[in-house]
Deep mutational scan, measured.
Amino acid sequence: MALNTPQITPTKKITVRAIGEELPRGDYQRCPQCDMLFSLPEINSHQSAYCPRCQAKIRDGRDWSLTRLAAMAFTMLLLMPFAWGEPLLHIWLLGIRIDANVMQGIWQMTKQGDAITGSMVFFCVIGAPLILVTSIAYLWFGNRLGMNLRPVLLMLERLKEWVMLDIYLVGIGVASIKVQDYAHIQAGVGLFSFVALVILTTVTLSHLNVEELWERFYPQRPATRRDEKLRVCLGCHFTGYPDQRGRCPRCHIPLRLRRRHSLQKCWAALLASIVLLLPANLLPISIIYLNGGRQEDTILSGIMSLASSNIAVAGIVFIASILVPFTKVIVMFTLLLSIHFKCQQGLRTRILLLRMVTWIGRWSMLDLFVISLTMSLINRDQILAFTMGPAAFYFGAAVILTILAVEWLDSRLLWDAHESGNARFDD
């Protein structure tokens, strides 16, 4: 018995066209964080690309023209004298008006014999932002004059995390709450300039795509075929072959399989920071003279006294001054041990922890910024005066060393310790 099946006739004509040209192939790229070699397709503007294995951002879609970056830099340069030299806060102490600005706080630190601690604050609040705007201006002028731009481009990517104007702005709020127990506070004209400078700096850093600047100024022929001998440069993120001198053909720094002496430098910085954190938390970090009496505060006791007036601000200072430094030390110690013992479990967790400490590390400088600003506000000789204690130097040095330890660690070593050939990683 035959089955009668109805015929289905399409209502619209289906047209099949042959592909007349070869589909576009992607360029081969190595991930600078996990060293995976993959094919990167062509990316349009405002599109980002991520590593298929570790999800690290390979290409950032946010990109401004150099002219727009230069305009932002010149605007920031105009704001800087007002943000640093004009009063941020006014207080009335014992019937006398006192003005506080950024430069005055750094000068008070240096004047009291601790120039190293003052230079830490100076670099993060004044030096690094000033280098940022002058570097962008150098790129703008240098591109037109045919100057060598490689050193500036190499420095810009590392400079971003040292620009800490946003953290200093939080420190202004913390210092205001600490001082309000002794005097009446009012915002100064410099505060508005400083807030504007923070906003412009944040926007500029978020749109400063150094890798795209490398592509514009020093374009290189990408690798179009897969080759395990391809290496990625950690300076400019170019994937290719080393030249005859073993250097990256684009930025001219040595092109090595792994960062040289990464573990040794990381261990040295980490152990030194552990040693410095002990006096930083045991010795007094601030000293207040009130009517001839002397009151010393460690980091913890200062947080407890701050909690009596504002528990939320005390929580912020606790996280930045105690929780973050010790968390960074514990995480980095764990990561280094996992590399030495070739741990194969929990790779995803370790990668996330490394990215976390990379982002939060700079916030530990908050305590030094609060001390710097408070020193310029309260300084009335023996009637009422505020000065920093010996722990300030140890704390600042420990924070900087932990930042350097994270920067010096080559994250690809975590993958080397893991089993080879993993296309995915999980716990």
Rank of each mutant, 00 (worst) to 15 (best):
G61Y: 14
E22L: 09
Q244K: 08
T224R: 13
L300N: 05
E296V: 05
S119M: 01
K57S: 08
T11R: 13
V406M: 13
L278Y: 05
R97C: 08
T349L: 15
E215L: 13
Q344A: 13
L353D: 01
Q29N: 10
M304Y: 08
S176H: 04
E86R: 14
A314G: 05
H90V: 09
P10Y: 13
R258W: 03
I126P: 11
N44L: 07
P41K: 11
V102E: 02
Q264W: 02
L414R: 00
A128T: 12
R30N: 10
L66T: 14
P24C: 14
R260L: 04
V133A: 01
S65P: 05
N44Q: 09
I19L: 10
S411K: 12
D427P: 12
V125W: 01
F326D: 04
L191D: 03
F217A: 13
K160I: 06
A314S: 04
L78D: 03
G113C: 10
I116L: 10
L404K: 04
R59C: 09
C54V: 00
S135Y: 01
T110P: 09
P41C: 14
P279L: 07
H252A: 03
G292M: 13
D114L: 07
T9Y: 10
I98D: 07
T9G: 12
G26L: 12
H207P: 15
K265Q: 07
A314H: 04
Q33Y: 13
A196Q: 08
L145M: 12
L37K: 12
A397W: 06
T349M: 13
I378M: 03
P87R: 12
L94R: 00
L409Q: 06
M164W: 06
C343A: 11
Y241P: 15
Q29K: 13
P242A: 07
G188V: 07
A397Y: 03
P81T: 05
F194E: 15
M103H: 06
Y28A: 13
A56F: 11
I14M: 10
D99W: 12
V170W: 14
V174Y: 00
T298H: 10
L230G: 11
G127K: 01
I316F: 09
R62E: 04
L93K: 01
K12L: 11
L257Y: 15
T387Q: 04
T387R: 07
P87E: 06
M375K: 07
T201H: 06
L283H: 04
D181C: 02
P222R: 09
L205H: 13
I126L: 09
G26S: 09
L336A: 09
I14L: 12
D166S: 15
Y394N: 09
I285T: 04
N310V: 05
A280V: 04
L78P: 08
S364L: 00
F122W: 04
S338Y: 15
L156Y: 13
S321N: 02
R97G: 06
P325G: 05
T202E: 15
A397L: 03
V102F: 14
M147Y: 04
H237K: 09
M356D: 06
T204P: 04
L3D: 10
E86H: 08
I288V: 08
V406N: 08
L366H: 01
E228K: 11
A280H: 01
S420V: 09
I400F: 05
L409E: 00
I360C: 05
F341V: 11
A423L: 10
V203L: 14
S206L: 15
L306F: 07
W214V: 13
Q264F: 01
A187Y: 10
L208Q: 10
R216E: 09
E407N: 14
R59L: 14
G26F: 10
L191T: 15
L336W: 06
L347K: 10
R258D: 06
R256T: 12
W214C: 15
R348P: 12
Q180D: 11
F341I: 13
D410F: 00
V275N: 11
I303L: 10
N291Y: 13
E419P: 07
H261S: 03
I322E: 08
T75F: 03
D243Y: 04
P284G: 06
M147S: 05
W267M: 09
G113D: 12
P390G: 06
L401Q: 06
K57R: 04
P81W: 07
I136R: 02
F123C: 01
R216P: 03
M1S: 00
A405C: 08
Q55V: 11
A49E: 03
L213H: 10
L335A: 11
T224I: 09
W359H: 09
Q220N: 13
L88P: 02
R250A: 04
M72V: 07
R350E: 12
Q55A: 13
Q382V: 13
K12S: 09
L271S: 08
N281S: 10
T358C: 10
A391T: 04
G346F: 14
L230A: 10
D114Y: 08
W359Q: 12
K12R: 11
T402S: 02
S372G: 12
K111Y: 09
V313Q: 00
P325K: 02
F369S: 03
Q295Y: 10
A398N: 08
V370A: 04
L205K: 15
C124N: 03
Y182R: 04
C124K: 02
G95A: 04
S48G: 12
E157F: 15
I185F: 07
R221I: 10
H90G: 06
A223Y: 08
D181F: 01
L283F: 03
I136D: 01
K12W: 09
A392W: 05
I8H: 12
